[in-house]
């Protein structure tokens, strides 16, 4: 990549630092929950996987900015979701995790692994067909927007704090992508603010402070009481 500014470098490192902090805070919460309840819910595990994929996305960006790998196809495609490359696969995986999360929340057990198979099929098709990836942009854009909307619906229906937090995090990140597609480059103050806000919110979300649904808190409290009652008996 050429013509990089200090903003690009700051942005790349900010993503990695923020995601690392988020993962550490989140893992600490999961460990605490495991001590209290004796188990970790599947929702938390899915959210953790989503964070790891986001961290990988940040690393991919840094790899190409720092020229550790050539910023050319098949490694780099320079636009989110238009073709299969190392930098866009993480976007596809993010969408995949989002769709699977939505299926899990809506209890569509039979469709749970379908997005993973779809992503694998798209990548496999890219290699056996000699570079065709026409379905990938549709998968990313339609799947991503659909998953985001359904995540909001599921979180309001189920009053799930984890789902709503993840939905807001992805919404802010998605807005940043939309701004880039509209022509604003990484040096624009708006893009920088959007990126900063997304990961700052992510850190707040990872601490567990963001809990807009009170019923979910009461539900968790009851789970803790029940599990402690069972232990004492």
């Amino acid at each position: 990549m050429t013509d990089l500014t200090i903003t690009d470098w700051l942005s790349a490192y900010w993503v990695i630092i923020a995601m690392s902090i988020m993962i550490l805070l989140y893992v600490r919460r999961m460990i605490n929950e495991h001590k209290r309840l004796g188990k970790v819910t599947a929702v938390k595990k899915i959210v953790l996987i989503a964070f790891f994929i986001e961290l990988c996305s940040g690393f991919m960006n840094l790899i190409f900015i720092a020229n550790w790998l050539p910023a050319v196809p098949p490694f780099y495609v320079n636009s989110s979701g238009d073709g299969i490359a190392l930098d866009t696969i993480t976007t596809g995986l993010t969408v995949t995790i989002g769709i699977s999360f939505v299926f899990y929340l809506f209890n569509f057990e039979r469709l749970f692994y379908t997005p993973f198979y779809a992503m694998l099929a798209i990548i496999f098709y890219y290699f056996v067909s000699g570079g065709h990836s026409e379905l990938f942009p549709y998968y990313v854009y339609i799947g991503g927007v659909g998953a985001l909307l359904l995540l909001y619906i599921a979180s309001f229906r189920l009053h799930d704090n984890y789902a709503i937090g993840l939905a807001i995090f992805y919404t802010i990140a998605f807005l940043e992508v939309v701004l880039l597609m509209l022509g604003l480059d990484g040096n624009s103050i708006i893009v920088a603010v959007a990126e900063f806000c997304a990961y700052a919110f992510g850190i707040i979300y990872a601490t567990g402070v963001f809990k807009p649904f009170k019923t979910a808190q009461q539900r968790e409290k009851k789970m803790v009481e029940v599990s402690s009652t069972v232990e004492t008996k």
Binding site: E109, R110, L111, T114, Y117, A118, A121
Partner: peptide, 11 residues
């Protein structure tokens, strides 16, 4: 394997 019902149709 209920969760893998999508595999045959993706293939």
């Amino acid at each position: 394997f209920r969760r893998h019902y999508g595999l045959p149709w993706i293939w």
